[in-house]
Amino acid sequence: MVALEIVGWIGSILIVLSLTQARVWRFRWMNLIGSVIATGYNTLIGAWPFVFMNAAIVVINIYWLVRLTRERHDSAVYRVLAVDADNAFLRHLLAVHATDIATHAPTFDVDADAGTAAGGTRHTFLVVRGDEAVGVVAVTDEGDGLGRVDLDWVKERFRDFTPGEFVYRESGALADAGFSALEVVPREGEDEGYLRRVGFTMAADRWVRPVNA
């Protein structure tokens, strides 16, 4: 009986902890596992109203996990919008999330001179899901079609879905801006797995990838 109660507590704790998660994917998986355990526990003790409630939560979580899996690489769900660096909404987004952005790109400053021989023209792109902006990619023109990625940031709750990939793979926004290749100068704590997933490979001292036409 004690072992059964421990199992029940584990399910309850997982459900509570899931509600503290900012990332949608992590929330859904933790909530699913907790509700499956809670369904089994309440079945064994005969608490049928709670069996129904937790079983319904299981079905809801499975529905959303399937939907999120289908949408995570769907170019019809995520769009890329090229915007000027002085765009009011872009600046508002960068200001609101400045602390989080600084942890990923501590040297990025949208107002700073990009500092390249080509004049340092910076192109900024908003990644949107419906009417919500979920990320920002900023690329500096280094000349001869080469772009340096200065910022690739996504809101925490969308980070498991890597929506930045749509800037690189699907949208054509980079090609429209005149880029034929990209590079990323490695920084401490760089997510190398993410860079590989979106098509970058290491060459010499930096990450590079061609731009899809």
Rank of each mutant, 00 (worst) to 15 (best):
D109P: 14
D74Y: 09
I45E: 13
A82D: 06
F89Q: 11
W25Q: 13
G189V: 10
T43D: 06
S12P: 02
Q21F: 11
R148F: 10
V59P: 07
G115R: 14
R72V: 03
I60H: 07
D100I: 05
I57G: 05
N212L: 11
P106R: 01
A88I: 12
H73Y: 10
I37M: 03
F125C: 02
R129K: 13
V154R: 08
P106C: 00
A102Y: 04
A181S: 15
L17F: 07
R70W: 11
V16Y: 11
R91Y: 05
A22M: 13
W25D: 14
E190M: 09
S35D: 08
G135W: 08
N61R: 03
A203Q: 14
I101Y: 02
L32M: 02
T99M: 07
L81S: 09
H97Q: 10
Y168M: 01
V66T: 09
A105S: 12
V167W: 00
M202W: 06
G11E: 00
W25H: 09
F158D: 10
G46C: 06
V137C: 04
L126M: 15
A88Q: 08
A22V: 14
D191C: 08
L44S: 10
T201H: 14
V51H: 06
G147M: 02
V51F: 12
L93R: 05
W207V: 01
E188V: 14
L44E: 04
M1G: 15
G143N: 01
L174I: 00
L17Y: 04
G145N: 04
H73K: 07
V80N: 01
Y63W: 12
V58S: 13
L195C: 04
D160L: 05
A133Q: 11
E188P: 13
A55D: 13
F89H: 15
V137E: 00
W29D: 10
L17N: 01
R70V: 08
L151P: 08
V7N: 03
A88E: 05
V137A: 00
A118Q: 05
A85P: 01
D160P: 00
V16R: 10
V24I: 15
L174N: 02
L94F: 09
D191M: 04
D191G: 06
V36T: 09
A38K: 07
G40I: 14
L126K: 07
F50P: 01
F108H: 05
Y194F: 08
E183P: 02
R169A: 11
N54L: 15
T39H: 04
G11I: 05
K155R: 14
K155T: 11
V139Y: 01
F158V: 10
D84S: 15
E165L: 11
G40L: 04
I45K: 06
F161V: 12
Y78V: 10
L174M: 02
W29K: 11
R67T: 12
N87K: 04
